[in-house]
Design a protein around this nucleic acid. Structure first.
Lengths: 279, 279
DNA sequence: ATGACGCTTCCGGATGGTGGAAGCGTGCTC
DNA sequence: GAGCACGCTTCCACCATCCGGAAGCGTCAT
């Protein structure tokens, strides 16, 4: 929306030199509260009041008032001993409401567990959202060394198993648009950064039925992934198996790929989807 | 929700009576935004603007402005087709930050102490790990004779209150797998060793809401236990009350069971969990 | 014991929020 | 197909609400 901030003549010389809205019309205090929550959510261990102030650029009194307001609703909490603020249960409960409506996660969980038992590797479920993949759920394996992806965290599409599985299942023009909008950034030395390489890999993915991420996101991490489709045959989500190079060997790839394809097919059926019009 | 909107028909002639802000002790718009998010999170399928207004008692324009502000930060989202508002990815991502630093032991301690005072018996907290139960924390009662479980120690699932509470809450195939992997060993003359007995007891546990260990782990030791669930409704941990036969009499069992159920429910809420899909 | 730092509370001022009303757009009914 | 009704969205003037400087207080380190 065009921020119509130019209506008031603004002739007044003593006017604030901050006429432009940071990001358009909104409710300032709500926006600030959200920024604070986001900062808290990104923090590893919790933040002191001063750190919150630095993170969002607010006066201590303002930040404190917002924090205590959030605290009243359990959206934020403070450890009295350390004075560290962190995300509260309320935000967690509400955030999990995001998964409601499409009970994908609830439906997927049993299949994910079975897949974890069959393969012995960590299973992830992710959806595409705004040109990135968002992890929705994870079933961790019991190995000492295992991949960890926090539900809710975002990763690029071009360098992850789930991302490439989703991209490969999209309409090509849509995929091109997404790739153009989010230029592939190199994460490791093996990341596919040129559109040509990436498109070739997506073709291979389609042919093979599952995507392979061979240390393209993180060194030493491999995964395989397959797509779950909705009732129109369009990609809805992706499941992946991920683990260290030491366990996900070349020899195991076809077997793991078959497992993840089978699980994705089961999930597609479970959500009432149909296999896509395969080329 | 009795939306206590008292704006109309107030006694306020023209002047606020300078209250001690019984409920206004925060930032109004933030509080309202949080209320909206909570309403969205509780909704099964999403809410129309009008429903949001009714839920939180706001004017449509105000609710709309708050919603669009939240939408800018991805805390809320609207389906253009249906006009239904729901919780956005941003809230999901941020909310999951709660899991970092969700220290089950620290969160549980107050409730455990409370439970110990109410019951007069020793309280234990345990999680399932690799087919066994691991004690995480204990609040000891002040009786001379009391059960002792060292935090960190492992016990079998089949013969302990916490273990059976956890088993009973698991997916049946999962429970079967665990029982098969860890064949029930007899600890006392009363230990349930046959799978049939054990499964029957797990059914009884589910029906009753709490597990009973009647000298199945150690002679003279009885306990009751109930399960704590995570955000998916899956078992996360269990709390138990344990003591000598002399004090944990048949007559007290139902009362103690109710207490342990109540404590487990409180803990489930505290960790952002939801009650499981009851059978 | 003294200082320094950071958290919390308070308060006047004016910025930013509020909600009534008008303006659409859409989906029904007739 | 026309009209209607409902609900979403934008606009605007008023003023309640929120902002942030400053003072007060507790805690920790020197």
């Amino acid at each position: 929306m065009t921020a119509g901030n130019d209506r008031a003549a603004d002739e007044t010389p003593t006017r604030r030199a901050k006429p432009v809205r940071p990001a358009g019309g909104g409710v300032q205090s709500v926006r600030r509260a959200v920024a604070i929550l986001t900062a808290l959510g990104a923090a590893e261990e919790g933040l002191t009041l001063t750190e919150v102030c630095q993170a969002v650029g607010l006066a201590p009194s303002t930040a404190h008032r917002l924090l205590t307001t959030l605290q009243d609703d359990r959206f934020a909490r403070v450890d009295p001993a350390t004075g560290l603020w962190s995300v509260g249960v309320g935000a967690f409960s509400v955030g999990n409401g995001f998964l409601r409506g499409r009970d994908l996660v609830a439906l997927a969980r049993p299949d994910m567990r079975h897949l974890m038992y069959d393969s012995g590797e960590t299973v992830n479920l992710a959806v595409a959202e705004d040109g990135e993949a968002v992890y929705l759920a994870q079933v961790e394996c019991r190995e000492m060394m295992r991949a960890f992806a926090r539900p809710g965290s975002r990763v690029p599409l071009h360098c992850t198993g789930v991302g490439k599985a989703l991209l490969a299942a999209l309409d090509p023009v849509e995929a091109d648009r997404l790739i153009a909008a989010h230029p592939p950034a190199p994460m490791t030395g093996r990341t596919l950064v040129s559109p040509g390489q990436l498109l070739a890999d997506l073709n291979a993915t389609r042919a093979r039925g599952y995507a392979i991420d061979d240390q393209e996101q993180a060194v030493g991490l491999r995964c395989v992934a397959a797509v779950i489709r909705d009732q129109h045959g369009e990609p809805l989500a992706a499941v992946s198996l991920s683990g260290p190079m030491a366990r996900i060997t070349d020899a195991r790839l076809p077997g793991l790929g078959a497992m993840v394809i089978r699980a994705a097919a089961a999930l597609t059926a479970r959500v009432g989807g149909i296999p896509g019009p395969v080329a």
